[in-house]
Design a binder for these strands. Structure first.
Length: 397
DNA sequence: CCTCCACTGGAAACCTAGGCTC
DNA sequence: GAGCCTAGGTTTCCAGTGGAGG
């Protein structure tokens, strides 16, 4: 072990590393230009441009699956917009509602960009949402601020807390005059509109823009560009980049995933002391990402779901609901945890299926009834290893 | 073509835990 | 603190069903 530690340090000292600029492959790195998103950038710029003449731009909604460049495009246009604006009362704010985690913190974060007077500062806690909205509105009105607020992962906010603050913001514009507030919502989920008040929806989606997934060819080009920044020359061969693009893109053109894959492959190569990323690095990286994903998915499961998953793993070659329920009940008794009903088990199986940990499909066996055919989709050993971390399972297996 | 199994999956009631208000 | 509200998870109840075997 100490030998490998020494080896690592020696390599680092000699600068014999594959990276020049590792952060070019970080998930939140904003590259100087965003290939294949020119159309979207232009359109957003077009929609927001009235603000430079002092009038209110339409609200805007951006849609697209993860890794289609929504956030990056939005951020880069805003950066440009800020540069362009000579007016001092232009405020551009970006908030990710998921990382802020609550309505209150989302608003508090926004308020930081508004430069509230001392007596109106938003404390960590203690105010009602209405009061916070009030202070923000007052400030916008008083100083005639022209504000653009980008709300990333807005679907999360709506799912967790409803459309209350969106409602406030979308209909408050008369009260803000001479200032105004334009909203740019970013969502992964097309369905989130269902839960919205129709008035909010129509106001929020005055303009809509859909981000299509990247094709494999596009991913390849994106990766090539990033690789040029991130790695020493010839570390990432075209063939390696091709493979990354193909592996990550086969599902749904997720650039984030592709970039992660390339970064991890680079880390693998570095660790192995290679000067080039080869196919095996990428496969190792891909496996690692998959294992991490599964691991994380299992770890964050509630006990009951874990127990059911464990029960499924007892059956090689699949099982069905009735059989599984018996096994599961016994397991619960053994572990000393509550036993849920069969109805519930059926529901949880559906969840596990959605997570891709288990395959559960309804089959009919004619006279012998209908049931779910259930199969474990992940390695038994990974599962057992991860589950054994949970104290409730220490004496299982 | 009908039966009838072994469940499925919808609907609604129930049961907490947590947060908020007074 | 008591009282109220809400959100999730769970249970209860039950009508519904694909298709092998009659």
């Amino acid at each position: 072990m100490s030998r490998s530690v020494k080896e690592i340090f020696r390599r680092a000292k000699e600068g014999q590393t594959v990276f020049i600029e590792r952060k070019a492959l970080n998930p939140d790195y904003l590259p100087p230009n965003l290939p294949f998103r020119e159309a979207q950038s232009d359109e957003i710029a077009q929609i927001l441009s009235p603000i430079l003449k002092g009038s209110k731009p339409s609200n805007l909604l951006l849609y697209g699956k993860t890794g289609t460049g929504k956030t990056a495009v939005a951020k880069s246009v805003l950066k440009e917009l800020e540069k362009e604006a000579e007016r001092k009362n232009l405020v551009v704010a970006y908030v990710n509602t998921r990382t802020e985690n609550t309505e209150y913190r989302t608003l508090a974060e926004f308020s930081k960009s508004l430069d509230l007077p001392k007596e109106d500062q938003i404390p960590f806690t203690g105010l009602s949402i209405g009061e916070v909205v009030g202070r923000i509105s007052r400030q916008i009105k008083r100083n005639g601020i022209h504000a653009v607020l980008v709300m990333d992962e807005i679907d999360y906010l709506v799912k967790e807390f409803g459309d209350g603050i969106l409602y406030e913001f979308t209909r408050s514009n008369e009260r803000l005059s001479p200032g105004f507030l334009s909203l740019v919502g970013i969502s992964n989920d097309l369905k989130f509109k269902d839960g919205l008040d129709p008035r909010v929806l129509s106001s929020l989606s005055e303009e809509e823009l859909v981000f299509p997934p990247y094709t494999v060819d596009e991913l390849r080009e994106i990766l090539t560009e990033r690789a040029k920044e991130a790695f020493r020359p010839s570390v990432a061969s075209p063939a390696a980049i091709n493979l990354c693009a193909a592996m990550a893109g086969s599902e749904h053109g997720d650039a984030r995933r592709a970039i992660d894959l390339l970064r991890i492959a680079g880390e693998v190569a570095e660790r192995e002391g290679l000067k080039q990323i080869d196919d095996s690095c990428i496969r190792v990286a891909s496996d690692k990402m998959e294992v991490d994903r599964v691991d994380e998915a299992i770890r964050s499961l509630p006990v009951q779901n874990k127990a059911i998953l464990f029960a499924v793993s007892r059956f090689d070659g699949g099982t069905n609901t009735g059989e599984l329920y018996i096994a599961y009940s016994n397991l619960c008794k053994r572990l000393g945890i509550e036993t849920l009903t069969q109805r519930r088990l059926s529901g949880i199986l559906g969840d596990l299926d959605l997570l891709g940990l288990v395959e559960a499909s309804v089959v009919s066996k004619g006279r012998r009834g209908r049931t779910k055919k259930i199969q474990l989709l992940i390695g038994k050993d990974t599962l057992e290893k991860t589950l054994s971390e949970d104290p409730a399972f220490s004496m299982a297996s």
